[in-house]
Amino acid sequence: MPFVAGVDIGSVTTKAVILDCAENNEILSYHIVPSEGDVVALGRQSMEAALRKIKKKAEVKYIIATGYGRVSADFANSIKTEILCHGKGAHAMIPSARTVIDIGGQDSKAIRLDEEGNLIDFAMNDKCAAGTGRFLETIARALGMKVKHLAEVAAKAGRPCEISSTCTVFAESEVVTLRAHRNEDCNIVAGLHRSISKRVVAMVKTIKPKKEIVFTGGVAKNEGVKKALEAELDTEILVPEYPQIVGAYGAALIAKEEFLAI
């Protein structure tokens, strides 16, 4: 059976997903690498690495590239925007999804879908790093923590600090000041999660979110941000099993559709 691939060349990580053309749309393999250096080469390498994980001898027949590096992806048959791919991927993973919140490395998106998973509205903030994964990374560095530990630390918070959400750089100095005033790290991190959520939810509300709300992107792995978003939106949100590869998965699904239509 022929294979197809979706490659999401993001600002922080590059993801590749391999599918076959079976009806169940099952992910056969995926691979994630940091986006450092030649992102086009990385896109190709991540796809090849994903292919190697499949035991059978495999050849990819059709590739869709998405993400910031998509325009340079000369190995792809076609390119699609990450908004379309994230919507597609999220709806395939969670068919009841009507709103997708994606927080990636350098942007955040809110996507509205209809019952069939078609894109009907979206909003995107890609001018400012506040409200993105980069914001979390910067603050984690200022606190001397790893990003993956932020949720665990925030869980101990009793009284989250107020942190400005307007600028990543100023928020970093704010965090240093809060620490100097002997605020506990757990309260600072919880405040940080609340800050990022407020900013993202303000954007989400511009597209009139409907249930179910699905949270994707690397930041969706942070339980603290998820809880803060739920509190701001006053509703439960769902996180797919592999939130980081939703865009690549959506790209692979479109690759499959386009390949079968040839």
Binding site: Y68, K80, T81, E82, I83, L84, N118, L119, I120, D121, F122, M124, D126, K127
Partner: peptide, 24 residues
């Protein structure tokens, strides 16, 4: 303040949205 490459992803997504809608 803004350049074509910086705005492109959103405009391209909007074009995709409109084409999907027209195809329906």
């Amino acid at each position: 303040a803004y350049s074509a490459p910086q705005l492109r992803t959103r405009v391209e997504s909007f074009a995709e949205l409109l084409r999907l809608r027209m195809a329906k």
